[in-house]
């Protein structure tokens, strides 16, 4: 199956919230939809799932327009919403039935997921009595209990404590192993970088970067050098065209010039020749965060011109 998004566009009056968004997801895994708040991520998801009509473009699954009939999808919205005055199991069964499960199936699936996420003791608890993290887990169960083919998680880690975040991490990996198509929307670049093979980066509704994450990073090459070791060795770095950037608790960081891998190698050979052995010497590709800052900066610069 292939998820194909073509030229999705949404305008609210004069403002274009999503401008000709296109991407393809041709294999299971985690796909990142990233951007700052207000970049158009949620609007794009809503259009993909037919929650709001698009002004232009299409979203298809296996060639057919995405509808509740053509695709079993699960969506966890950024703004968590559950019935606060209703018992947890009761509302999960309701959500399951709405997604086409029979009552017994929905009950079983809900119980299984609650057990899996350590929530069994809260089956008959009124939702408002749960902590925010547990309410979020209920929302996650509601998203998954009908065994969706496509899972869309909008800012899934926001508000989770480290233990629950770890639990969600494991669950996402499990879903990936099960062959699910997962779209993760987030403005937390580190999170996306951890999971996503491919991504689309949005800024003010426009796509500023997209593709396979490894290829994107390879395209940038090595952009920084992290080195720890004798001070005299570190002091030699700038002689090889490496620009000092910062000192972290564990190492000093230098910016490599464009295609600077050769200078870094020359530098390494030079310090080794002088018997100065670094304890850390790592050439790094840019983080997604750095790429994002660079792309947004370029976009803003163009807009300013």
């Amino acid at each position: 199956m292939i998820l194909q998004v073509d030229n999705l566009t949404k305008r609210f009056g004069e403002k274009t919230a999503v401008d000709h968004l296109s991407f393809t997801m041709d294999r299971p895994g985690v796909f990142g939809l990233i951007g700052t708040n207000g970049a158009g991520k949620t609007t794009a998801i809503r259009m993909m799932l037919q929650m709001i009509p698009a002004n232009e473009g299409t979203a298809t699954w296996g060639g057919a327009p995405i509808t509740r009939q053509t695709l079993r999808f699960g969506y966890m919205p950024e703004e968590r919403g559950i019935y606060l005055k209703t018992k947890v199991l009761e509302q999960l069964v309701y959500f399951g039935q709405l997604r086409g499960l029979k009552k017994a199936q929905a009950l079983q699936a809900a119980k299984d997921y609650m057990k899996r996420l350590g929530m069994s003791e809260y089956e008959n608890t009124i939702a408002e009595k749960l902590s925010k993290g547990n309410q979020q887990k209920i929302q996650l169960i509601a998203t998954l209990l009908h065994d969706p083919q496509l899972v869309i998680l909008d800012e899934p880690f926001s508000g989770l404590d480290p233990i629950n975040a770890q639990m969600l991490r494991e669950l996402i990996l499990e879903l990936e192993d099960q062959g699910k198509f997962i779209i993760m929307s987030s403005h937390q670049m580190a999170t996306v970088e951890e999971y996503c093979k491919s991504l689309v980066m949005l800024h003010h509704g426009k796509t500023i970067l997209q593709g396979d994450l490894h290829k994107i990073k390879d395209g940038y090459g090595y952009t920084s050098l992290r080195i720890a070791g004798p001070e005299s060795a570190i002091a030699m770095a700038e002689r090889f065209g490496l620009q000092y950037r910062e000192k972290t608790p564990s190492a000093s960081v230098f910016t490599l010039p464009e295609n600077g891998a050769a200078q870094a190698e020359a530098y390494l050979r030079a310090i080794l020749a002088q018997d100065m052995m670094p304890t850390t010497f790592v050439m790094e590709q840019p983080t997604l965060h750095e790429i994002f800052i660079e792309k947004v900066g370029a976009q803003e610069g163009r807009a300013a011109q």
């Binding site: 929650m51 509740r68 969506y75 919205p77 919403g81 559950i82 959500f95």
Partner: peptide, 15 residues
């Protein structure tokens, strides 16, 4: 349902 944001969960399931 709107104020508690349940609506979003509902309308991905039903028209």
């Amino acid at each position: 349902e709107k104020s508690t944001r349940v609506m979003e969960t509902l309308i991905v399931s039903a028209k």
